[in-house]
Nucleic acid binder design. Structure first.
Lengths: 343, 343
DNA sequence: CTTGACACCCGAAGCGCTTTGGACTCGCAG
DNA sequence: CTGCGAGTCCAAAGCGCTTCGGGTGTCAAG
């Protein structure tokens, strides 16, 4: 079933049928009705490739995920982000294509992506500090939005990011207010921009109270459960162990909890934990009473917002770069309490 | 940069250039070299849409994920599956497009997907028991492979699945061998086919020893941490509590562990836990010594295998349906031990 | 009666590629 | 010298759609 057949079936020209279906005004309401009805009946829907060729728009957005030979791989956040973005695409009639690429010849990859022409815009995931992809994409003249930001790049570009520094500053302050002075930071990989900013927030909060960060209380790594366990395990074994932890993800926090229990301490009483929580659909932090005190920001919402921004820029390429900074909420759960009195 | 310009630049016809680039024999090796070099230099890569139009192949695979209004949403397994599938696509030069669809007018969705013509094949996720999409897709004459299976459908189709029943039979037997008699099953949603089969395996193993499943020890739900916690919490509060749990995912198992600790018991001594483990990249079950005894099967491998099967069928549509049953490994970790003696 | 204006519709070109059906040039056997 | 196959290359059609640049026919205004 294609346009030609449909047109023949209706005794109309392809032109008219095409216009009728695409809502152009130079076609009578009556024939438009006839056409749309016939289209539905015969299960006609236009061939996207042909349409794309003719219009120059692919009606699709590309998500590029670096899948480096180290183990970053697809991270748990991705599913929810995509779900959010999909909401936006669904409404706008856009498709989504995924490219997991090794990060060898990045430049070539993006250039090809553009030349192949099956996406109208790109969402960039997992920006590193001064990420080289950003200036490159800017030069490519293809609309893109970064999920996150890249520090130390002053060139303007579109991004949607959580205020990571602010979130960790608040979390740190919260713990400081509870009397904690030795706060372990169990961070993500710090060449990733978000993790870098989180450490900044943490250190700023400490500095504001005249405290210097203890290197023994800072750890950076991939945010798995065993990593959280190990990091907490080691720090708790110190002569002067931390009374509180700040972790970068719920999964890591779960590992921290395991380590705390294993040493016979109790979370929320002997040791406090505040975690960042991406509010993932399958990793809920409890219902009414959150298990962990957390700084929470829905990555699914971020996905929707990022996609909407991109679609705006695809529709109007002349738009100046736009940015959105999302604020994370601090929600109080059962994992925090006043610092235990020293004895 | 397109074919026409490249041809002009080389003083050749589009035909010859196209053939040179696509490895056809009716072009001299010398000109082929000239052409490929010029193509690389000028950063030419063919427009995928035009190519698709001309060849009738989209060089892309569609993943359709039901995103129902209930809360299944994108599940944590998805990211790893996609990473595996990408390996196969990358090698074969295929792209991947994602469609998250509401499950209202499924039939219409798939029909449109085919008519739009930007995928050559489909991977079906999350099959339910006697899933209606399977007969429908068969009728559509578009190659597809199901990740999982649908019980109570005797029609042939391509699938890649883990032997869920076998895995849970083995896990149950393992616990029975350790002397456990009251084994709680904390399962996924049982209208999903995989969860249904897991229960079957569990019940078969019990039946083989003349045990009847206690309804109070069976629970079905979305595999979140709080769900695992709640289920275990409730069962442990029974007059005759279970001495072991069988859980459907690592995340759920983590909730179970929390419940066990909360009642002052110790996992692996007072209460045993065996979990299903999808071997997710970001949710590792410990390194050398696994935290949980688990039945493990890499969902990432499954993704690769499924994609490879689909590509085979896209290349040769006449191939008869093919199936692959993956066996899960039983790996022993610290979460299991002999049933505590009754007193 | 002619002229625009308007509403409606159509033919055909063109998007960038592949592929069919030749065309041309050699070299070699007849 | 002719014929013929092999080796190279090309022109043009076609994939399914949009869209430009007209074409009708009707009707009110001039």
């Amino acid at each position: 079933m294609n346009l030609k057949m449909l047109a023949a079936h209706l005794g109309l020209s392809q032109t008219t049928v095409s216009r009728a279906l695409n809502g152009y005004p130079e076609v009578s309401e009556e024939t438009r009705k006839r056409v749309t009805e016939a289209a539905r009946e015969l299960n006609y829907s236009p061939n996207a490739r042909a349409k794309g060729l003719a219009t120059g728009r692919a009606m699709a957005i590309g998500h590029v995920i670096p899948i480096s030979t180290q183990h970053e791989i697809v991270n748990p956040v991705f599913g929810d982000f995509v779900a959010g973005a999909s909401e936006a695409y669904l409404k706008a009639g856009y498709d989504m294509t995924l490219s997991l690429t090794g990060d060898e010849d990045e430049a070539q990859n993006y250039r090809r992506l553009k030349a192949k022409g099956n996406v109208d815009g790109i969402i960039l995931h997992g920006p590193k500090m001064k990420d080289a992809r950003i200036p490159f994409l800017t030069g490519l003249k293809m609309p893109f939005v970064v999920h996150g930001r890249a520090s130390e790049l002053d060139q303007p570009y579109c991004w949607v990011d959580v205020d990571n520094a602010g979130a960790f500053r608040r979390a740190t302050n919260f713990l400081l207010d509870l009397g904690h002075r030795r706060i372990g930071l169990i961070n993500g990989l710090e060449f990733m921009d978000f993790a870098h900013r989180r450490r900044e927030g943490y250190e700023e909060a400490l500095a504001a109270r005249g405290l210097a960060p203890d290197p023994a209380l800072g750890r950076s790594g991939e945010m798995t459960e065993p990593y959280g366990y190990l990091a907490a395990h080691d720090m708790l074994a110190l002569a002067d162990p931390p009374t509180a932890f700040l972790t970068a993800s719920l999964i890591t926090a779960i590992g921290v909890r395991r380590a705390i229990h294993e040493t016979g301490r109790e979370m929320g009483r002997d040791v406090s934990v505040v975690t960042y929580d991406d509010d993932l659909s399958y990793l809920s932090n409890g219902r009414d009473v959150p298990i962990f005190t957390a700084i929470r920001s829905s990555v699914r919402d971020a996905g929707r917002i990022t996609a909407e921004m991109l679609l705006r820029h695809v529709a109007t390429p002349a738009l100046p770069p736009e940015t959105t900074l999302l604020e994370a909420q601090l929600i109080i759960g059962g994992s925090t309490g006043p610092a235990p009195a020293k004895h």
